[in-house]
Design a protein around this nucleic acid. Structure first.
Lengths: 233, 233, 233, 233
DNA sequence: GATGAATGAGTGTTCATTCAT
DNA sequence: TATGAATGAACACTCATTCAT
């Protein structure tokens, strides 16, 4: 896939043509991402994907052997591992574990939740039945690392006696569920009935964080979050 | 198929044919529910629906003018109007508001979550973009009544000084999110990677309820739930 | 076809039920005539025919074994012989042969041209390719008698030295063509672009008769028709 | 299929594929013309059209978005724009107006009447009810120009005192009716009962012209047409 | 490598016809 | 006799995929 042919004559960064050639799969994946997220797998026509990427239908099949493979590539491309980077970031975080968790939500929203990447999750969940292999992939690449990341935060809280004792396996999902809920809502009901949620996503996350921390913290002396801090998180 | 023998002596209820006619829409709806939930809207063939209902393709179109209308009918059929009954039940409930909320979760799981009806919600969210009208319907018939129901419980808790003061608009979703999360998980990842959640749905709900109540209750002196009560619920 | 069962018990004109029974085929034929003329053979649904006749679809097939047979019956029923009666009428006519021919046009217009029966001819011609047998029938029942009728008029004119000598075989069609033209126009272009003809059918017939007689009469001293006689004919 | 061998050396005219692409619509239109005329709109299957044009069904839909549009294209393709040329021809004609009219009939028969194009008119009239829009088109593109053309001939005759005074609006149809009659006859009864007309089309036209001119000419001294001139016209 | 014309299996939908009641 | 629910063959149309250029 995406066969990078040896740049024939120039040793330099490559001519415009070559750059295009290398860029093709990426452009197709981006176009496909947009359309799959917007319309779903079945309702997206490969012609549209090709057209949006500025190539012909035939070219698409040069890079991806089928629509299904294109779909899988789109998902793979867009859900994979920011976790390493993320881990380091949180590892290095100085502050209370409550703050870590809030920061974690904030970062998630900024980098995933409010971007097109959130559409991928929606897409994945929607099409899961028809693409079981990709769900396996998602499980390995996203869910398990994600769980581990959250779990480490919770463990930190417990170790530092900030959080009460808890069943970690379970509580991880208490933390994850709001994110998944929000991505789904945004790309389904939220897209049709804009104000159905009754608040902004940021507010939603904040309130969820408040409540979770209220439930987890040993001494919820720390005010859940600065009272008027809508934008802050 | 399923040849209801002619009721030998009673003049009641009509002939075989008539009885069939009345039963047909229901049988088709049930077959369609199964298949739509199992494979999604696009991947479900109307022939399959008809075959599963034991009729020919033509018969299906006798009762539903198109595949889309069939889909809408499936959604309508399976989600409306359990709220009235439910409301009364919770209104009449005697006990702490924590108990009410736990009971609410329990009842939801038994009547919706663990039944095929949970597939409808998954379906709705998955296909929302392609059926905006149905989302409107869902918003009116399911989301708003559901919010109202939860809100009344929260108000009860606050009124009785069991729960802390809170922004009701927001907190409603703290309560709802786990249910939606669970329905989705079950019909997507859960269907492909059975143990991905790491616990049973019942456990998941319990832990969510625990945490939410931990966050809401003024004095979480009441032990969240009997420690070993996995199966109890 | 149209099996008249022995009226079982009453010797009288028949009960309402029986009259209905006998009337059925007629009602169906009438409904079918209307719809076939209005929409063409292919675009007419047998359900519609049955509905307009006030019976169920099944009943239609009790009287006519197929849609095609229904069509043939409609045509047969509506094009057959008024020629005998007509012949006598013209035979008995006293006056110049020009007057006979004008009277002939007038009578044709009143009894065929301006009634639904004209639609039958249009229908016949339109569907001819798909119903060759019926064209044979039409040829026998309508065209040949019609030709004969016109020919007799022309012969009368020649015999009385009112008309010039002519090839009768050919001239018959000089007389017939305007009628056929008018029926077709009325049920095709005329139905879509009401004023496309630029005159009333009556005027059209008059002018055609004028011209034909102008061409046929030995001495067209007879003023073609009373100058302002639009309605008169 | 019909493998046009690759033009071995010439750089002209494009590749095999390209040439096909340009030819396709025409080939399809021709196939459709044949079949529509032969069987009518409803009875013609798009597969047949495609097969006759030597392509697959899908290819047909590459060029025409629907069967209806194909039909409209067939009509449009085959009836427009011979009038300009025709007009000029008749305008330049030197001779008596009787001769002009006869020439007009002759040319009409050679270019329209005896070609497949005559089937279009039959088709149009037959399917008019189902395609009202196309009737409008026909009215604008064919009927009105045709009327104008005939009218100019009649005016010429009157101006040169060859024809008697007449109501032009009406008389135009005296001239047109035989053509329309003939096209219809040929494609309906004529196709089923070959000799029903009793003469050749050429004879039919001649006799009609004779009679019309007999009716129009001031002094029908000019022998209608050379007595034995069947083939001459 | 890139194209886009061509394909044809597959889909939703229709409707004349049947037949149990 | 009359019904109308059920049928299923037939049809228009779609679209992922192929391949000659």
């Amino acid at each position: 896939m995406s066969p990078t042919p040896p740049s024939p004559s120039s040793a330099a960064a490559g001519t415009k043509r070559e750059r295009r050639k290398e860029a093709r799969p990426g452009e197709l994946l981006e176009a496909a991402l947009d359309l799959f997220v917007e319309k779903g797998f079945a309702a997206t026509r490969v012609d549209e994907v090709a057209a949006r990427a500025g190539v012909s239908k035939g070219t698409l099949f040069l890079y991806f052997p089928s629509k299904e493979e294109l779909f899988k590539a789109v998902v793979r491309e867009n859900i994979a591992g920011r976790f390493a980077e993320w881990n380091d970031e949180l590892e290095a975080f100085v502050g209370t574990t409550s703050e870590v968790l809030r920061y974690c939500y904030k970062v998630w929203w900024e980098r995933i939740g409010c971007t097109k990447a959130s559409g991928i999750t929606k897409l994945m969940l929607s099409e899961a039945q028809n693409f079981p292999e990709i769900v396996q992939f998602y499980q390995q690449e996203v869910i398990l690392p994600g769980q581990a990341l959250i779990r480490r935060i919770l463990e930190r809280g417990v170790a530092r006696s900030e959080f009460r004792a808890m069943n970690l396996d379970y509580t991880v999902y208490v933390v994850l569920a709001p994110m998944i809920f929000l991505m789904l809502w945004k790309h389904s009901i939220g897209a049709c009935v804009p104000d159905a949620l009754g608040m902004t996503p940021e507010q939603y996350i904040e309130i969820q964080a408040d409540n979770i921390l209220h439930g987890l913290c040993v001494r919820p002396d720390a005010p859940p979050s600065p009272p008027s801090s809508t934008g802050t998180f």
